[in-house]
Simulated assay, not measured.
Amino acid sequence: MPRPTSPILSADRIADAAIELVDAGKPFGVNALARELGVTPSSLYNHVDGRDAIVELMRGRLAVRSAIEVPDGLTWHGVVEYVVRAQRSMFAEHPLVLPLLVGKPVTDVTVLGYYEALAEALLSAGFPDEEVLVIVAVLDAFALGSGLDLSAPPQVWQAEPGTALGRLVAGGEPGGIRADKAFDLGVDLLIASLRVRLDAMREAKSG
């Protein structure tokens, strides 16, 4: 029997199948993924070291599929907004994948690339070394939470009638409309607060 002209498995195929498996709410693991791909676990281990390696393939594949690549020439706050919006969009499409990603260190070069662009932009703006990683973590948490918010029920709060929250919920906009407005306001607030912080640091140095 002739050998296939191309390998049955590839990193992209493994990652795509793993994402599809998790998105469908099915149990995730090497054996489950091997069944999904129609191969033996040993064949899968010829391409990946194990479950953690598959998760990292998924992380990188999501970033590639979402085409997250920071454009040249953006201001520091332009980079912040681009990365947060791109991450939110990516996370919103795959909420069940998120718990897997947050529990593992980031090693994928594509993902590290946009984090590097974010760090460089903040450093170039004048934020001190000791604050940049903290700011990146804040932005990350906001993007993650905002992505999950898009998969929330149309009415998140089931408040009692007659309460302040109940009145606001009854008159508010549901689901994605509220989530989009919350995200846009959050982006504006984050960037505005970072501007204020940066201006205060500059004033302190010049004084």
Rank of each mutant, 00 (worst) to 15 (best):
V136N: 06
L133I: 03
D52C: 01
V84C: 03
L9E: 04
G176T: 00
W157R: 14
E203I: 03
V70E: 02
G176N: 00
P71S: 08
P27A: 09
Y114E: 05
P99A: 14
L9G: 05
L37P: 03
Q155H: 08
L33Q: 09
L118V: 06
D129I: 10
Y45F: 13
P7S: 13
R202N: 03
L44R: 12
V97E: 13
K181N: 04
L144K: 12
F28V: 15
R195M: 09
L101P: 10
L122K: 01
D52M: 05
S206V: 01
A164M: 14
P174G: 01
D12I: 05
D12K: 13
M1N: 12
D49V: 09
R167Y: 13
K104L: 12
Q87L: 05
L33R: 13
L148D: 10
M58H: 10
V136E: 08
P174K: 03
P7C: 05
A143R: 07
L44D: 15
D16W: 01
V134T: 14
S146W: 03
V55L: 04
A11D: 04
E160A: 07
F91N: 13
R3H: 08
H47G: 10
S146C: 09
A18S: 12
I191M: 03
G25V: 14
Q155E: 10
L189F: 06
E120N: 11
N31P: 06
D12A: 12
P105I: 05
A86D: 03
R167N: 11
D52A: 08
G78R: 06
G73C: 04
A34C: 07
V84A: 04
D12T: 12
L139N: 06
L189Q: 13
L150D: 02
E93A: 15
G38I: 02
D129A: 12
I68S: 06
